[in-house]
Design a protein around this nucleic acid. Structure first.
Lengths: 100, 100
DNA sequence: CTATTATTTGGCTATATTGCCAAATATATA
DNA sequence: TATATATTTGGCAATATAGCCAAATAATAG
């Protein structure tokens, strides 16, 4: 396959892979409701600080979220809300496999 | 977190994870153009028969594709083309992080 | 029935991912 | 400065994933 085509596929797969983990998907859906600091996400997710931080780093590297340090806290926001429009389709997949 | 909510997130993450691999994403995009037998996909992907078969099984388990055996060949089709509408957004993520 | 073609499955190794703990860093506050 | 809080980083063990080969299965042709 063409190298350039392959590179695009790899990049897209990376984004999808970042979304393809329950904790990270939960974080993305939470961020869809607005900015959250790491500490809030830690409480909601119920995992170790370091674990959540690593998930956030991965999402950031994939280009899905953005961080903003203010004082001693770091706030994360969803960079690409268009991802959420996906979710209806994904839900269609899981309920039966029909979609428009 | 609520068990039911968690189950939905897990299921959605499973679909996204299935799409989050270069070879599988390639297969999905190829199937978007129409039905393909395993043998065609093997040629296009350039991996072992068994490897492609396992990717297809995984996509099938995630509810993304469907198979249909006719004669000695197995044809796969994309079960949820709505997934493709995603791709513009995913491409937006990889080019710069802006999306509508 | 035998041989051939298409596909899947089992088994294995290499590699990647996950998640915890502990330590490091950064910022704020006393 | 010392201390507390927020977050990231390093390291590690457990688990999962990817991809190859070889073997099993299924369908067809001879």
């Amino acid at each position: 396959m063409d190298d350039r085509v392959q590179a695009v596929i790899d990049a897209k797969a990376k984004v999808l892979k970042a979304l393809g983990h329950p904790t990270r998907l939960f974080i993305v859906e939470e961020l869809a409701r607005g900015e959250r600091c790491v500490c809030e996400l830690v409480k909601l997710v119920g995992a170790d600080f370091s674990t959540v931080s690593k998930h956030l780093t991965l999402l950031k590297n994939a280009g899905v979220v953005q961080d903003d340090k203010r004082g001693q806290m770091v706030f994360y926001t969803l960079k690409v809300p268009c991802i959420l429009r996906f979710m209806d389709c994904i839900e269609a997949v899981i309920v039966s496999g029909s979609c428009k």
